[in-house]
Amino acid sequence: MDLNIESDNSGILTLDGELTIARTEELRAMLISALENAGSVHVRFKNITDVDLSCLQIFCSAHRSAIDMNKSLTISRKGSEVFRRAAEAAGFSRKKGCILDFEDSCLWIEGGS
């Protein structure tokens, strides 16, 4: 896990390896830190080997938190087939975002980022 804050106040959070319940606490802390330190956060995946439900949920939580903080959080789902498949298997794929998502920035919208 690696967080880079760019000069334009955007942060890039790079995640790798297993994204499972064993790392949820760590992931939560990273996401909080990213959102506190950057205006917009983009999550990038690198060699992801496993993704479970606890991890999918936390991205949802992070996205809501970003909206709540008036910031943005995006992920590149296409960057990881493992992540994309896990989201699909867990029934997270959406046509429309949740009740808080007024700008259609939901992480799970089909064909999204």
């Binding site: 996401l31 909080i32 936390i58 949802c60 939580s61 938190s65």
Partner: peptide, 26 residues
């Protein structure tokens, strides 16, 4: 046809890493 319901997922500050907040309509 499986749709995950995510409305119970809290903000990060209230988030319990060991909890399951999702439920499903199938």
């Amino acid at each position: 046809n499986i749709v995950a319901q995510t409305d119970a997922i809290p903000l990060l500050r209230d988030y319990d890493p060991d909890a399951c907040y999702t439920y499903w309509d199938i």
